[in-house]
Computed example of a mutant assay.
Amino acid sequence: MTPSTQPSLRAVRVLARLQRMLEFADAGLTIPQYRMLVVLSEGGERSARLAQRLAVRKPTLTALADGLIAAGYAERASEPGDRRIVRLQLTDAGRAALARADESYLAALAPLLSRMADPDRLVDGLIDAGDALDACLPARVPAQSPVESAR
């Protein structure tokens, strides 16, 4: 079996192409901005925990957060009872931007899914992969994540 026919390698190459497809979608957000808004939509987070969940270093997170705050999509809020603790939270404008991006990404994937014999199989597989990422990423955040080195 040649390297190009190995199923895992083929899957990696398909994922890279899927990412590129999403990057070209007119979502109004970059993929890193989208990822951060998705995490923030689940509830406010302290920056250390947010960096861990996104598998990025704190300086990268700070730059990303600053851009989202400047756009009005996120805000910093003090923790009740301890003003030293600052959490990032999604604003109403951030929720609207996330909803627009969700629609854009779904629209970008629709032609692909419509050509597949069993699109639910792909969707279910990606959800399983997301669950596996949630289980293994927080336990091991490298000094420089693959996401950062791919930029």
Rank of each mutant, 00 (worst) to 15 (best):
P146Y: 07
R53Q: 13
A93W: 01
A143W: 10
R49L: 14
Q52Y: 00
V38Y: 09
L22I: 09
V14P: 01
P32V: 03
R20Y: 07
C136V: 15
R53I: 07
L122I: 04
P32K: 08
A132W: 14
L106P: 02
L88N: 02
L109Q: 07
R87M: 10
V141H: 08
S104W: 07
G130L: 15
A135F: 04
Q89K: 11
M21G: 12
G43W: 02
A143P: 06
V141R: 14
E79R: 03
P138C: 02
A71W: 04
A117N: 11
R95Q: 07
S104T: 05
G81H: 06
A110L: 09
V141Q: 12
R35P: 02
R13N: 14
Q33E: 15
R17H: 11
M1I: 12
L64R: 08
E23F: 00
A143L: 12
P59E: 00
G130M: 11
G81W: 04
E103L: 13
A107C: 01
D82K: 05
A65N: 12
S104F: 09
L137M: 11
D131F: 15
P119N: 08
A139C: 12
I127R: 13
P59C: 01
G94C: 03
D118W: 03
V141C: 10
V14F: 08
R13E: 13
G44A: 15
A48T: 10
R151N: 12
R140W: 13
A135R: 14
I85L: 10
D124V: 10
L98V: 02
S114I: 04
L98G: 04
T5R: 15
A16W: 09
L109N: 00
L88V: 00
G28P: 05
A77Y: 08
T60S: 10
L9K: 09
P111M: 08
R53G: 05
I31D: 04
E42K: 14
S47G: 09
A150E: 08
R84L: 09
